[in-house]
Amino acid sequence: MEAKIAIAIDDLTVAYNYKPVLWDIDLQIPEGVLMAIVGPNGAGKSTLLKSILDIIKPLAGSVTVYGKPYKKQRDLVAYVPQKGSVDWDFPTTALDVVMMGTYGALGWIKRPGSAQKKQALEALEKVGMLSFQNRQISQLSGGQQQRIFLARALVQNAAIYFMDEPFQGVDATTEKAIIQILKELRKAGKTVIVVHHDLQTVPEYFDWVTFLNVKKIATGPVADIFNDDNLTKTYGINYKASIAEGTL
């Protein structure tokens, strides 16, 4: 049986200046996959996420979520930005950041109450950060900050999760904890899309993969398409040497 399509991207093209960052991307992401987006630096992985989420305006193309334009389906989608994209010296606590995940459902002006706090505390517990709820965010380690960001997205209780490099700069324990949560999300029928850097863990963590380098190179089940041919097409002929040197 054909799985439902969670995200459908048609002819997506993005350019910052004159040079296209993403060129004519067609991509269909089936419901319930745990997908990695891989590609070299500057391949447009983060940009792809941001243009799906309407943070960046694409030059052309369209994105639909379960058959309707993204703008009408925002409440189905949660986003975990790169940890480095915000200032962690901002005067606020871990709980407060996670509470932000409830703001979308609350809407304008309404204030979060005890129901929202309860949701946030549950999410904090899921990521193992309950005891850090009152910690000033600058006093969290990189891994803890990443867990906070994940908890904030979990609070949204979305159907589709987008994550930008959630494993960057985190400790091994956090990486394991996060992948565990992602696998649980998939088990619950959610679709999870992760910009990923570490090629070696792709087969272990993910069941679906998209190769990206300005253009879409390939997309499909990891078991079928995660091979030398596609890796070479995406990273160039010397990708193996680069992996060995750790420059990838």
Binding site: I55, V77, Y103, W108, I109
Partner: peptide, 21 residues
């Protein structure tokens, strides 16, 4: 009135956008 909106935009504007604000 806009306390929570202000706080969220100050901390993480991109994320705020994805919530529909």
């Amino acid at each position: 009135l806009f306390w929570k909106e202000f706080k969220m935009v100050l901390f993480d504007a991109d994320y705020t956008k994805t919530l529909g604000f």
